[in-house]
Amino acid sequence: MSKILINGSHPQYLVNFRGPLIRDLIARGHELHVSSPDLDGEWRDAVLELGATPHSVPLRRTRISILGDLNYHGFIYQLIRKVGADFVLNYTIKPNIWGSLAASRAGARSASMVTGLGFAFIAGDGLARAATQKIAQRLYRMATDANSHVVFQNPDDLADFIAAGSLRKPDKAVIVNGSGLDLDHYDVAPLPPAPVFLSLARLLRSKGLEEYAEAAAQVRTTIPAARFLLAGMLDTGPDAVSREQLDRWIASGIEYLGHLNDVRPAIAQASVFVLPSWREGTPRTVLEAMGMGRPIITTDAPGCRETTVDGVNGLLVPVRDAGALADAMIRLARDSSLRAAWGTESRRMAEEKYSVDKVNQSLIEGLGL
């Protein structure tokens, strides 16, 4: 039996996305501790119900802060020592880096789960961004040097990590199919007869939300009855959509549903799910929509292309191409039988490839737990 500490960066995602993994590890006889900022109230109670011990930690999830990150590193080091953790499992960039370095300092084995490369690897303009990316990539190299395993959700992310020098020992890599999906929780819901599009993501430019809003305006001129829903939380990072920009989208006809603790009612309202992201690990929201039997429109980008077979369960479009996105949306808006057929195929693919039981078994075996 191991004492395992799982470090995340958001309490809701820790419970909703890692809950089945926590349960599976406990069922195998391990003692589980989990950490996240703001892990209190209902989320603390949810962790206790899973059978794990919750720890709220001082992590600034999006802000670049050397002192804040070093404080988090020191806190995790002390937490590892306090609970006697012998294995530390991290995910998202700051826990991956600082949690892995803390584990090495404390003499504990560790692994990083790379659930997407995001801002640290997506090309952009400006010297400040380039410098920040170089620092992040070098910090990742230090972290993966300390890890026993590094978990990826698609082969493109693994290849880019190696190319950037962020993983010097490729034999540490483990590839799994996303975070896994509880197919009982995300059951098939009837498709609405009208064309209703939904995009569900953190409100970041790199999720392709500007393209979604622009494509919606184009589709509306051809199919005035089409509806366009958007759900997700406002963010504070350098890639974040501003409140002013969101308000402009709402004024143009986008129906903003806010930040949702349960995404299933929103997906049930939609007849097509759209995620025009520039890059993902494996997009969780796409898997949730697939589980509920929705056809998918997403980009031919790392992580996204793994979820969708073009012309089978949806359509792939080029990254940052609002015109191509609008054409794909119009095609599905005009054909309800195609939406139904591709939605059925999405569910079949979710059952075959993304079942949480299969993914967790692969992950736990890959980590030697």
Rank of each mutant, 00 (worst) to 15 (best):
L275S: 12
A146I: 05
G258S: 13
I223K: 01
T285P: 04
R264C: 09
D40F: 07
L315K: 09
A106S: 11
D156C: 15
S355T: 02
R220P: 00
K3P: 02
A130L: 13
L325I: 05
A52M: 04
L229W: 06
D125A: 15
N154I: 04
S2G: 02
D45Q: 12
K353L: 12
F273D: 01
G368Y: 08
V34Q: 05
D125M: 11
I175C: 03
Q269P: 04
D182S: 09
A251W: 05
R339S: 00
S148D: 06
S277P: 03
G368W: 10
M1A: 15
A102E: 04
A251S: 11
S65G: 14
R220G: 00
P190W: 06
R109Y: 14
L70K: 14
G74M: 01
V359S: 07
V263A: 13
A301Q: 12
S277V: 09
G8Y: 03
W342C: 00
G126S: 11
P192A: 12
L200N: 00
K134G: 11
A46E: 14
L229H: 05
S100Q: 13
V47C: 04
V176K: 02
R339Y: 04
D310A: 07
T132K: 14
D357E: 11
P58H: 15
A289V: 05
I97V: 13
Y72H: 14
Q12R: 12
L230R: 03
M233P: 14
R109D: 14
M1E: 08
S112L: 07
V359K: 13
A251L: 09
H73M: 11
G8K: 01
K358C: 01
A106H: 07
I175D: 00
L230P: 00
W249F: 04
R109H: 12
F228P: 03
H73A: 15
D86I: 05
E210A: 08
Q269C: 06
H185T: 12
P11Q: 10
L181D: 09
L260N: 10
P170W: 08
L367V: 09
F197C: 08
A225W: 05
L332G: 07
L127A: 15
L198K: 04
T299G: 07
